[in-house]
Design a protein around this nucleic acid. Sequence first.
DNA 1: ATAGGGTTAG
Length: 559
Amino acid sequence: MLAKLRISKLVSYTLPRRIFERRFLVTNNAFSKAEESTVVTGESPELPSWVKDFLSNKPSSSSVSNDDEDFVIPSLASWVESQKFNSKQVSEGNVVKKPMEDIDKVCEFLNKKDASYGNVFNELSKCDVVVTESLVLQVLRRFSNGWNQAYGFFIWAKSQTGYKHSAQSYNAMVDVLGKCRIFDLMWEVINEMKRSEESGLVTLDTMSKVMRRLAKSGKYSEAVDAFLGMEMSYGVKTDTNAMNSLMDALVKENSIEHAHEVFLKLFDTIKPDARTFNILIHGFCKARKFDDASTMMDLMKVTEFTPDVVTYTSFVEAYCKEGDFRRVNEILEEMRENGSNPNVVTYTIVMHSLGKSKQVAEALGVYEKMKEDGCVPDAKFYSSLIHILSKTGRFNDAVEIFEDMTNQGVARDVLVYNTMISAALHHSRDEMALRLLKTMEEEACSPNVETYAPLLKMCCHKKKMKLLGILLHHMVKNDVSIDVATYILLIRGLCNSGKVEEACLFFEEAVRKGMVPRDSTCKMLVEELEKKGMAEAKLKIHSLVQSKTQDSHSPLSVA
DNA sequence: ATAGGGTTAG
């Protein structure tokens, strides 16, 4: 009943737009504050204390200064310092002194300035923690973009008496090295897994990660070779399931060609199943090769398999991307005739595409149609809906949908939060965005890099340096590793705001971690330094880039 | 892990 009411209310907005316009006309802050007093996203007239905390970096501060432009953010490696600063603040106020957690102790050692050049292993010998599997997994997550720190810790952990790496820890290490493209070391770890007295450590799980990472780096042939050799070398069966995993990796990383080749080559030895065909059809559709996709569907039929929702949905998506909605409708009809009704994924794709091409009324019509069909929306669907509403200027409707989700029995996930945070920032609702980040914590929904990216961008743009520092710290606390994309975002954003010194700090830090930003970013930084006549800094950047491009990863010296 | 997101734009 309630749901029904809401939909009609939503759809009615598209025609009269009365309510919407009324809200929109009022730009006065006070009014919007009074009108929205909802639990999650509302803005209160008084800054809530946690926002103050967020903004002040210490518990219960009195006021928020506006001059945070002048605040110079410490380089990332000295977060530990600021962390100490924090705990001092706390212990002054409270009698109880919180003991430092093991993860933070490890973090402190790994962040020592010289650690990445020198010996992480030796540094850690002074670190007084008890290694457990969960600690290892947490460290690997927190340093998933800093392979030499992660690897140094990994080696050290292995040397600790009473501890042995589990299959999960090994797989996590393999994945970190693959992510950072340190493939030779990655294979070394895999071979070590094989040699271990504990047998069966290398599994399809391990090899799937390897294939995915290789494909992601454009090393398609190597991914295929890894598959072909894995039974012989590591005893991992090359069955249908494993082949699907390989083809999925190839297709997802944009090489339908390699996937197709594998398919033809292995057709006689490994029996394909319906999933195999769906993966290939998806790949062809993604590459806009409609003829090949159709041929594959015919082959699928001949080979005793029937096209299903997934098969048709791949075509639906491809035609959506072409903007050919007439063809989309034809396929939807065909699906129903063949007894594969569109499901929530199909509807999400159609709605999202319509919204993207500014056909909002039609997009909302899909929402109606879906409910009529008895198809229940899920979190990803809501995320799309929120996004298109926000993008078409209907932010309040987006907020309404966001808040109604849980009433509809759908839990909000990271993607939904990320979408809502981006939307809020897009509509200059900075406070709401921060409030949403806080709500994630309360709902035990872990943020990821994408959660922080738009917030960091806002900080750079508005020169909110204090908040920037706090957010970066927040990331570390939540085990979100800073990746190249984030460094690029920071460097470019800070350059644009004339904060070259800070941009340089981040640049140096990125290089120190073995992540060299692209040429365009380096150029931007150098030009900015030239403009400001900072010749010395310019030279430093130049030499940093050169030293790092010569040996892309300095080998780690571990005993 | 077979199909769905955003990201980044002055």
